[in-house]
C-alpha cells in the first residue's frame, strides 16, 4: 500500500504539523519509501510472540503519594513564549 497526497495531509493534520503544499509530495515519497522498508516485517511469522515494550520487562514503579516537587512556577514560566499573571497565554479559544 502507498500513501497519497490526502493521506499525507491527514497524517500531518493529526500530528499538528503545518506542511507547505509544495512539500507534500516529497514527504509522501519519503514516507512511502520508509513504509516499504518497514513492510519487510509483514513476512515474518510472529504468532504467539509476546510484544516487548520494555527491554527488562520492568513495570512502572510506584511511590508514596507525597508532595516532592518544590514550587518552580517562576522558573518554568520564564521560558514560555507568552505569559500573563502566572499563566501561559494562547490565542482566544472561547468567543
Amino acid at each position: 500500500m502507498s500513501l497519497d497526497r490526502s493521506d499525507v495531509e491527514q497524517i500531518a493534520h493529526l500530528a499538528r504539523l503545518q506542511i507547505d503544499a509544495a512539500d507534500v509530495d516529497s514527504y509522501g515519497d519519503s514516507l512511502n519509501s520508509i513504509l516499504n522498508l518497514v513492510d519487510q516485517m509483514q513476512a515474518t511469522n510472529t504468532e504467539g510472540v509476546e510484544p516487548l515494550a520494555h527491554p527488562l520487562d520492568a513495570v512502572q514503579r510506584l511511590r508514596a503519594d507525597e508532595v516532592t516537587e518544590p514550587d518552580q512556577r517562576e522558573a518554568l514560566l520564564s521560558v514560555a513564549p507568552a505569559t500573563e499573571e502566572g499563566l501561559f497565554l494562547v490565542p482566544k479559544v472561547i468567543e
Partner: peptide
C-alpha cells in the same frame, strides 16, 4: 508487530 519482532 514491531514489538513482537523486538522480543525475537
Amino acid at each position: 508487530k514491531a514489538q513482537q519482532i523486538r522480543r525475537m
